[in-house]
Design a protein around this nucleic acid. Structure first.
Lengths: 101, 101
DNA sequence: TTAGTTTATCGCCAATAGACGATAGGTTTA
DNA sequence: TAAACCTATCGTCTATTGGCGATAAACTAA
């Protein structure tokens, strides 16, 4: 994008909401989060079994969810346990709530 | 994306939520919608004045919001009046609500 | 009919996203 | 130590996104 440097300034809430929404903007990531809500937590391998996607692809989606703050990874060697990041989850929840009135 | 043809099948709600989220995944579009919530309605030209973006860019964002169903355009020649699509807005609202529990 | 106004679309370009296979980096177990 | 297991990262590819200017399309007003 040509204007990536001379960035438009938006309100903090607007940026935050867009960031969360962007992370939710792919059905696989929605499905991952729904899965995490049910199971409360799970490992990467569990998800690779659930979705017909390469392990690297699932890992990439997890990374994006983690970057958005929606999930967090806990080292349980040799596995990694992913859970909803409850704090940011609540922030996202209230941002969407407020947005939709 | 290599697998765009052999698409994964997700639940209807998952697809719908991802579609709405994707449309919300850009700060400009969030800002446009917030503006529409305040003004209830507005014309393309109004938004072009508000945002430091080319007219074609604003038009493009409006198109994406319309494709997602979040807004609708009403012909008021020679202008076009954009408003929130209340029906789909409520659908989106409840999908996000349900998603976040 | 002509000119002006308003918005959508087209064509282009750079950057990002989404998929994959292959590889690397841990940890556990034999 | 060696082998096995689990996950992240790298490199590559294609599709999509987001920006712009220029142009087209549709309507109004002179």
């Amino acid at each position: 994008m040509k204007r990536s440097l001379e960035h438009i300034e938006y309100k903090e809430d607007t940026e935050a909401l867009a960031k969360f929404a962007k992370a939710l903007g792919h059905p696989t990531r929605i499905a991952i989060l729904k899965h995490l809500e049910n199971q409360s937590c799970c490992f990467t391998g569990d998800l690779v079994d659930v979705f017909p996607l390469a392990q690297s692809t699932v890992s990439q989606h997890l990374k994006e969810l983690k970057n958005a703050g929606l999930i967090q990874g806990e080292l349980k060697p040799p596995k990694i346990k992913y859970c909803i990041d409850q704090e940011n989850w609540n922030i996202a929840k209230s941002l969407f709530q407020k947005f939709f009135d």
